[in-house]
């Protein structure tokens, strides 16, 4: 899948006769997702990550831009045509208790996508529902249950089953583990990794939790106020972040190791994310960036290749050395472990 110059602006009405303001939720985003990989997308709230997910699935229409799925631009295609592509994509949302229909049993929930996409043979439907339940670690005994009878972890398993029951190629996972407890989070992450391996799935994994994203992703894209600011191979991004915003995020993440507290590493974070309605001119991060120079205030940086598939949108990417923020963290992430 390739996404090119994708934009989505939402109007904010100010009055009947006034011109609306525009929220640039996703603004000129270009990237590729390769078959079988996990692309992680991180960013704070309001950075446009969920809007991006909805655009990719064509749940909302982009303002401009192209989305190529297997070579075809799916922005222009008709509704009927789109259906063909829809069955090759699935989505899992953050809160399963909100995304599952409380009035449908698990069996009905899972049967739905099959019926919608024309699989009507009752035996086959039943077989596939059972089969998918087993794949996500549930069983026949759960078929007649309703969502409220299941725990959060089991509900999320059902949501995953629903997303993959049509054998899709691409699954968009929008914060699939954020509403779960740590012990359940690990179960779901293991399941996702296993399913990807067994079914050769491609994932787009959206989250604000850096440690989780690093764990599941092959490559990670960082978003800030609707813009893609950095994209690189996962470990490379953690070890060798080039964009000051990425380093800021990394330095702000709480690390479960009392030997390295904020006090020792916490100096990059300043300010709060501004409103996406009137983003700052130039580089959108400049008001919060300790390294900003006059050029950053006027000229918007574009994504540049800094080698090895590592792209950064920063005027000073080549000269800045952010390793003091990132390499220490890297050590903790890779080395601290309870035996």
């Amino acid at each position: 899948m390739t996404v090119e110059g994708l934009r989505k602006y939402f109007p904010v009405k100010k009055g009947f006769f006034k011109k609306p303001d525009w929220i640039r939720a996703v603004d000129d985003v270009t990237f590729q997702v390769f078959k079988g990989e996990t692309l992680g997308i991180v960013g704070e709230s309001g950075s446009g990550k969920t809007t991006l997910a909805k655009l990719i699935l064509r749940l909302i229409d982009p303002t401009t831009g192209k989305i190529y799925f297997d070579g075809t631009d799916i922005v222009g295609v008709s509704k009927k045509e789109l259906r063909k592509y829809r069955r090759r994509m699935g989505i899992v949302f953050q809160d399963p208790s909100a995304s599952l229909n409380p009035r449908m049993s698990i069996e009905e929930t899972l049967r739905r996508p099959l019926i919608v996409h024309g699989i009507k043979d009752r035996e086959e439907v039943r077989r596939r529902v059972l089969d998918i339940l087993q794949k996500v670690g549930l069983g026949k005994e759960h078929m007649k249950k309703y969502p409220h009878q299941l725990s959060g972890g089991q509900q999320q398993r059902v949501a995953i089953a629903r997303a993959i029951i049509l054998n899709p190629d691409l699954v968009v996972l929008d914060e699939p583990t954020s509403s779960l407890d740590v012990s359940i989070q690990a179960q779901i992450l293991n399941l996702l990794v296993k399913l990807q391996h067994d079914l050769n799935l491609t994932y787009i994994f959206i989250s604000h939790d850096l440690l989780t994203v690093r764990y599941v992703s092959d490559r990670i894209a960082v978003m800030y106020l609707g813009k893609l600011v950095e994209i690189a191979e996962a470990d490379e991004l953690f070890y060798n972040a080039k964009h000051p915003y990425t380093a800021t995020l990394l330095s702000a993440a709480p690390i479960p190791n009392p030997e390295v507290r904020y006090v020792k590493r916490f100096s990059l974070v300043r300010g709060e994310p501004p409103s996406p309605i009137n983003p700052p001119p130039g580089c959108r991060f400049h008001p919060r960036c300790p390294y900003a120079i006059s050029r950053c205030r006027t000229k918007e940086p574009v994504l540049k290749d800094v080698g090895g598939g590592h792209y950064v949108a920063c005027h000073r990417a080549e000269e800045l050395d952010l390793s003091e923020y990132t390499s220490g963290l890297w050590k903790i992430i890779t080395e601290s472990r309870v035996s």
Binding site: A186, L189, N190, P256
Partner: peptide, 19 residues
């Protein structure tokens, strides 16, 4: 168990400990 199941100190996509 809680500390072991955090996704740190592991390789990417390596099986996590589960309670």
């Amino acid at each position: 168990g809680l500390m072991k199941c955090l996704p740190i100190g592991t390789k990417r996509k390596e099986q996590l400990y589960v309670i």
